[in-house]
Design a binder for these strands. Structure first.
Length: 1024
RNA sequence: GGGCGCUUAGCUCAGUUGGCUAGAGCACCAGCUCGACACGCUGGGGGUCAUAGGUUCAAGUCCUAUAGCGCCCACCA
């Protein structure tokens, strides 16, 4: 078999491709979708030429296919190899991915690609989340907007069908986005939180918890969304200040002439009052405690109670009406005092039959009516306008009503403690560490977790209700260990939990079963993600240890616990904590060893990006404009320890391409139309528009933050291009580092240092440093200095061979180092290098891996780091920069003569590097040594190790030169003054470490010498 | 109200355990098409490190307070 040429084609001229022989071992791999890596050997070295600019799109297309075909991303358990596993935080299928996802997934891919190169058996598990309420709300909104229908018009089955269609569309889009970003996920394993494998895990977990008494049903106060008619979680609400009022009323106190005054923002809740509370120590109300008040509108008698927790005597009147069914604090108070709880609302927000004459009215209408009626009774003491911070539903944007309803809960006390212990004893470590506090604080509250949602989209609660004698259950489910039952709180109804769905007639026609209509909180299935995606629990029942015969269990045992979870801080409580809980509960082990929390991306105004605000960017826009490598580099560059990062966004004018910065008023879909300041044509700003606009073209978005990555990819490309143009005659061969010339030892020293640093930075999740280190080494050291120095050597037959080997070897290392961050650019160059220099590497060349994806991660001997050599090159760089500065100042186009007065050792060094100095600084004659004299008209540069004179015969501007020297002199004197003052301080000499004091002494001596030298030069200049 | 961060050049950010004259990219100014790269090269200008105290021989770095910004949690009869 042979690989067709086009699969490794590089869009280079055909003729330069001379693949000699290509062979693929016969594949007997049984697993579908997996292909054994292919091997081929490569042709003879020759110089080849790349296009002038890196074309990211071509690279993306080519290498995505190439990687897929080779199955590099697929992982299977291999007992001899250490696994490295990450499960993706599954994106919601509510919509497309945004920048936060781009960041999150880039960082995961960097880790996965790096560890893969290190030889780990890496698995990155991809997938998406059904995102219960969020997805249903999106689809319901569309239904309302486009068809004017509610979910009830459609019915449960039809709505769920519609949501599945939505899911299919967005899941595909999300997976495409991930793929185009270069994420090296094991795509064959892609999961969805509602697919059968995950559903099985949910069912088994629920069953276990119910059986263990950890799941219960009870009446609790929840956040009720009256539009979606469901409970929503605390984290699904937001607070918004609205105009409201503070109403003051009086209730008569029974058997007295007294009244008790109180204030409320929600007068209609008087219908549900079951007490009035005062502070037990409040002298104003001592005599009323224990008496009875009357609610006139419904003629209910309610007690006046003392409650120190509910009442703050310094606020308002000091007396509080208590509505346990419609206020969280009152609810707690109601529990403490065993008050009745009267629910006055229907699910749609109208008053129910408990509201007597007000039944059927909307709650806001009732509010007015109640107030009027109280006024008629003379019990209304006025209202005061006030801004009220009101809870709203995230999904429907309507005000939340606290509402008493039946819900399912998980008891958290023991589960939470186990999860806390795992972090306290270090089985799970947070990076940065401080986030452990968020986790521990939240779990420490041990609040029971409400897991039921009155929705249609999600995992149905596996509970069936029946009214019957228990004997019926025992008979019907005899011998079955997959069905358990318990009586509800009122002891009237059986709650039956089953691993498999029960038919309605399971108990016979006399006792029909009815399944709970609710679904589970979406986080219930997300909480199982690390083990459910790996196949837990397999076909076995929870009590049976599955054993070696179960392949799913074997697989889970291999990859679980996973290595690291990469996520953002806002779901530490919602998700991270719950994964630890269920992991410990189901598997008995933590789900991951590390949790890395990355920063958030903000817009230009410091606000988080969100779809609602419309300040987000589609990663595909960035990929289209700058390339996937640039997107990834930008993301890695941004990922610092502490700091959220601002990302100013621009709209790209669809007519003329001008970048128009996004302003505040463009957000929240407020501005439908923007006029381009350059071409004056209108367009619609890019963003979260729900539909197309046929008349107005929509702008793509851009951000200059990605230019750095695009430029870097191009720089790397061109460095490679230069090399490939100069590889004629390249012959691989071993190098003895200690025998190499100084410039080679320098770049190898720098390379060894950079490589070690990057490895360490990756280990510590210091992503931003990784980007910086690889960028600086590649650009400022390799390209700016080493490549420039190599130009002379490549022309010199004596030096050419070694220079080629070192250049190729260093570039090879750079490609490996950069690959986790910029895989497409790295692969493009890697493949080109494979054509021209298949055997390469330092110090001993080896045949190259067929892809940089599987090339070994580099590591170099610590002995290569040579600080003395680095110092010598740094001195040369100082000399070169000094000469360049003079040339630039005098605008010199021709070469200059340079005279350097220095010690013999330094002079030897400069002589050895003379070729580079003349090349890099444009020097004609270079003289150095202790006896070198300053030429009459020259510019001076004073350095601790030398004095350099640039001859300016006939060109010198004496005044300007003197002025410059004086400025320098002033700076040095000021610095000297500071340094001397420090040294003269006896406390400093005594208390500071000896080496610091010595450093200071050396500095003073240096400065004094330099000042003397500058003074001397100034004198000479003036005399001349 | 509680907690966690942040405030360094016009902009976006680095700055390890306190220790030589605080760095980068972009933007700005000047010059460069010289055979890798104008998505480039060379040189340059630009900062009272939010403010006020304190600790220390020494503070951008540690402590306290203040102001502003962001996020999380709780709460507002």
């Amino acid at each position: 078999a042979s690989i067709p040429l086009h699969s490794v084609n590089l869009s280079l001229p055909r003729t330069i491709f001379q693949l000699s022989s290509v062979s693929v071992p016969a594949s007997e791999d049984p697993e579908p979708g997996w292909q054994r890596p292919r091997f081929y050997s490569i042709a003879k070295p020759m110089s080849i030429e790349l296009p002038k600019q890196y074309d990211p799109h071509e690279a993306q297309q080519r290498w995505l296919t190439f990687w897929d075909e080779h199955g590099f991303f697929h992982s299977r358990p291999e007992p001899g190899r250490t696994p490295y596993c990450i499960v993706i935080p599954p994106p919601n299928v509510t919509g497309a991915l945004h920048m936060g996802h781009a960041l999150n997934n880039t960082l995961q891919d960097v880790l996965i690609r790096w560890r893969r190169m290190q030889g780990y058996n890496t698995l990155w598990m991809p997938g998406t989340d059904h995102a219960g309420i969020a997805t249903q709300a999106v689809v319901e909104r569309r239904l309302r907007v486009e068809e004017g229908k509610t979910r009830h018009d459609l019915g449960r089955e039809e709505l769920v069908k519609r949501i599945w269609q939505w899911k299919d569309q967005y899941e595909a889009r999300i997976l495409r986005q991930l793929r185009e970003m270069g994420c090296s996920c094991d795509w064959a394993r892609t999961r969805f939180t509602l697919d059968p494998v995950c559903a099985r895990a949910v069912r088994v977990t629920f069953f276990k918890m119910f059986r263990d008494g950890l799941i219960y049903r009870g009446k609790r106060l929840v956040n009720w969304d009256t539009q979606l008619q469901t409970a929503v979680a605390d984290d699904e609400i937001f607070h918004e200040t609205v105009k409201g009022a503070f109403y003051t009323f009086r209730y008569p106190v029974k058997g007295t002439n007294e009244f008790i005054r109180f204030a409320t923002t929600r007068p209609e809740t008087m219908l549900g009052d079951t007490a009035v509370a005062v502070h037990p120590d409040d002298p104003r109300y001592q005599h009323l405690i224990g008496k009875t008040a009357i609610i006139p509108l419904v003629n209910r008698e309610i007690p006046i109670i003392a409650d120190a927790q509910l009442v703050d005597p310094t606020l308002g009147t000091g007396a509080v009406k208590v509505t346990p069914a419609h206020d969280p604090n009152d609810y707690q108070c109601g529990l403490r005092h065993r008050l009745p709880m009267i629910n006055i609302l229907n699910p749609d927000g109208t008053i129910n039959e408990n509201g007597g004459p007000y039944a059927g009215l909307d709650r806001y209408v009732a509010r007015g009516r109640v107030t009027e009626d109280m006024e008629k009774l003379g019990l209304f003491d006025g209202r005061e306008d006030r801004d009220i911070d009101l809870a709203h539903s995230d999904r429907s944007k309507t005000p939340i009503e606290p509402y008493l309803s039946d819900q399912w809960f998980v008891k958290m006390a023991d589960l939470a403690q186990a999860a806390m212990d795992a972090v306290i004893d270090g089985r799970v470590k947070f990076f940065p560490e401080r986030y452990a506090k968020t986790y521990l604080d939240w779990l420490g509250e041990k609040r029971d977790w409400c897991i039921s949602r009155q929705l249609w989209w999600g995992h149905r609660i596996p509970i069936w209700y029946a009214y019957c004698p228990e004997a019926e259950l025992k008979r019907a489910f005899a011998g079955r260990d997959d069905v358990v039952w318990r009586l509800d709180e009122e002891n009237t109804r059986w709650l039956i939990c089953a691993l498999e769905d029960l038919p309605p007639d399971a108990l016979g026609p006399k006792y029909p079963l009815e399944q709970d209509p609710d679904v589970l909180d979406t986080w219930f299935s997300s909480a199982l993600w690390p083990h459910s995606t790996l196949g837990w629990p397999g076909p076995a029942l929870p009590d049976q240890e599955p054993g070696p015969a179960n392949p799913d269990w074997q697989q889970m045992r291999y990859y679980y616990p996973t290595s690291v979870l990469v996520t953002s801080r806002d779901i530490i409580t919602l998700w991270v904590a719950r994964m630890v809980i269920t992991g410990l509960y189901n598997v008995g082990e933590v789900p991951f060893h590390h949790v890395y929390i990355h920063p958030k991306i903000l817009d230009a105004f410091g606000e988080t990006m969100s779809k609602t605000k419309g300040n987000g960017i589609d990663p595909l826009d960035i990929i289209e404009r700058y390339g996937a490598d640039a997107l990834r580099f930008g993301m890695v560059h941004i990922a610092t320890e502490t700091q959220d990062s601002r990302m100013p966004v621009s709209n790209v004018c669809p007519h003329c391409g001008t970048l128009v910065p996004v302003k505040r008023e463009h957000m929240y879909m407020q501005t439908r139309k923007v006029t381009c300041p350059s071409c004056k044509k209108p367009f619609r700003p890019g963003g979260p528009w729900p539909d197309e606009d046929p008349d107005l073209p929509t702008a793509k978005q851009a951000s200059e933050r990605f230019e750095i990555g695009r430029n870097f990819a191009n720089k790397l490309w061109n460095a490679a291009r230069f090399l490939l143009m100069n590889l004629e005659g390249y012959a691989p061969g071993a190098l003895r580092v200690e025998e190499l010339p100084i410039e080679d030892r320098w770049i190898l020293s720098r390379l060894a240092t950079a490589t070690a640093a990057i490895t360490e930075q990756l280990e510590g999740y210091h992503f931003s440093d990784v980007a910086r280190t690889i960028y600086d080494f590649t650009w400022s050291e390799f390209c700016d200095w080493y490549v420039e120095m190599s130009k002379g050597r490549l022309r010199d037959p004596a030096g050419r061979a070694a220079a080629q080997r070192v250049l190729v070897g260093v570039l090879d290392a750079i490609l490996r180092l950069v690959h986790p961050v910029m895989p497409f650019a790295a692969e493009s160059i890697w493949q080109a290098l494979n054509e021209a220099a298949f055997e390469r590497g330092l110090p001993v060349p080896e045949p190259s891996a067929e892809s940089v994806v599987i090339a070994p991660w580099p590591a170099f001997p610590a002995a290569w780091t040579d600080l003395a050599v680095e110092q010598r090159i740094a001195r040369m760089q100082d000399l070169v920069r000094a000469v360049r500065e003079v040339r630039s100042r005098y605008d010199l186009k021709t070469s200059v003569d340079v005279f350097v007065r220095c010690g013999e050792t330094v002079a030897d060094d400069f002589r050895a590097l003379a070729a580079f100095i003349t090349l890099l600084a444009g020097v004609g004659r270079l003289e150095c040594g202790p006896n070198v004299q300053k030429p009459p008209q020259s510019a001076t540069h004073v350095h601790p190790d030398f004095e350099a004179y640039v001859s300016l015969r006939g060109l010198i501007d004496v005044d300007a030169e003197a002025k410059r020297l004086e400025k320098q002199l002033a700076e040095k004197r000021k610095h000297l003054q500071g340094a001397q003052a420090k040294l003269e301080n006896p406390n400093f000499r005594e208390k500071a470490p000896a080496e610091v004091v010595q450093q200071q002494r050396d500095l003073v001596a240096d400065l004094q010498n330099q000042i003397r030298a500058i003074e001397a030069n100034l004198r000479e200049l003036r005399q001349a």
